[in-house]
Amino acid sequence: MTEPHIGQGDRAARHTDFGRLIRDEATDTVVCHVCGRAFRALGAHVRVHDMTASEYREEFGLLRTRALSARSLSQERSRARRAGYRASTEAQERFAAGRAMARSGELNRRRWNRADGQPETDESRRVRQESLTSGRRTQARTAGARTAAALRAEGFADLGQALRTVYVDRQLGIEDTARVLAVGKRRLRQLLTEHGIAIRPSGQNSDAGRLARVQLNDRAAAERVGVEDITVWLRERTAAGATLRDLAAATGRSVPWVAARIGRR
């Protein structure tokens, strides 16, 4: 006698792993949500519960593309499919459009946008959320490491000291402060607020701020060409026959900027 489909209320009460394929890693098997038995290939087993594999996935909130098999079996099938694909020119031509969509990211966009109009399953919703969360964490770690490296390079003990020194004492603007500390402008404004530092109105400059920006640009140009004093280097290169345009390209600055520094006395 086959077991009938489980209703929504009963399902929540009897199956705590709704929306997740249950695996027994010790035996490399997958566990049936209905009877609790483990199998290498669950797709064939669920017929005894009067379900197709597709109906089983829908019943328990799984991705419609979820393989209902042990990892080793899925890997064996995947290797066999890849070998068959490589050996068949016809198959390669048939799937060329799909490969192009995968490379461009279109397949992934369609996956999350549910372009086919079908409702999102519980598993796809969970996987999407986990993917987004993981991506945000990775971005945060990368940004944190980049800022920490910038603080060390500038000799700051902590972020608060850096913000007060660069933004308050040196009077650099938002854009230049963000560049020194290797953060985005939006993030910088958040950090200033968190550290109790008032954000100056846009366009408000000071002599100290203008001088700091000049020094910052000079240092960036010097680092780009690998010298200590950019003005000395520019004059030496000019004496050697370099044009203003050549020097602007080398330093990543403008021709007027180069001319102004060469003309300094």
Rank of each mutant, 00 (worst) to 15 (best):
R81L: 14
R81V: 06
R82C: 08
R82E: 15
A83I: 13
A83Y: 14
A83M: 10
A83H: 13
A83L: 13
G84L: 07
Y85R: 13
R86V: 08
R86E: 13
A87Y: 00
S88K: 13
T89W: 00
T89A: 15
E90N: 07
R94T: 15
R94V: 03
F95R: 10
F95T: 14
A96W: 02
A96V: 08
A97C: 05
A97G: 10
A97L: 10
G98W: 00
R99M: 11
A100P: 02
M101S: 08
A102T: 07
A102S: 12
R103G: 01
R103E: 09
R103D: 11
R103H: 06
R103T: 09
S104H: 01
S104D: 13
E106H: 09
L107P: 01
R110L: 10
R111Y: 13
R111K: 06
R114S: 06
R114Q: 15
A115T: 09
D116W: 02
G117A: 06
Q118K: 08
Q118A: 04
T121D: 11
T121A: 04
T121R: 03
E123Y: 03
E123G: 02
S124G: 03
S124C: 03
S124L: 09
S124N: 13
R125A: 15
R125K: 11
R125V: 05
R126S: 10
R126M: 06
Q129E: 10
Q129G: 07
E130L: 12
E130V: 12
S131G: 08
L132S: 14
T133I: 01
S134A: 12
G135Y: 01
R136E: 13
R137W: 03
R137S: 09
R137Q: 10
T138E: 14
Q139I: 03
T142G: 04
A143L: 13
A143G: 03
A145S: 13
R146A: 14
T147H: 04
A148Q: 15
A148N: 10
A148F: 04
L151F: 05
R152I: 05
A153V: 10
E154P: 00
E154L: 15
G155D: 12
F156M: 14
F156S: 11
A157M: 02
D158L: 04
D158Q: 08
D158F: 01
L159H: 11
L159M: 07
G160V: 08
G160I: 02
G160N: 12
A162G: 09
A162H: 02
L163V: 09
L163G: 05
L163Q: 09
V166Q: 13
Y167H: 07
D169G: 01
R170I: 04
R170L: 12
R170M: 10
Q171C: 06
Q171T: 05
L172F: 04
L172Q: 13
L172K: 00
G173C: 07
G173Q: 15
I174L: 09
I174P: 00
E175L: 04
A178P: 02
R179W: 06
R179L: 06
V180T: 09
V183L: 05
R186A: 09
R186M: 08
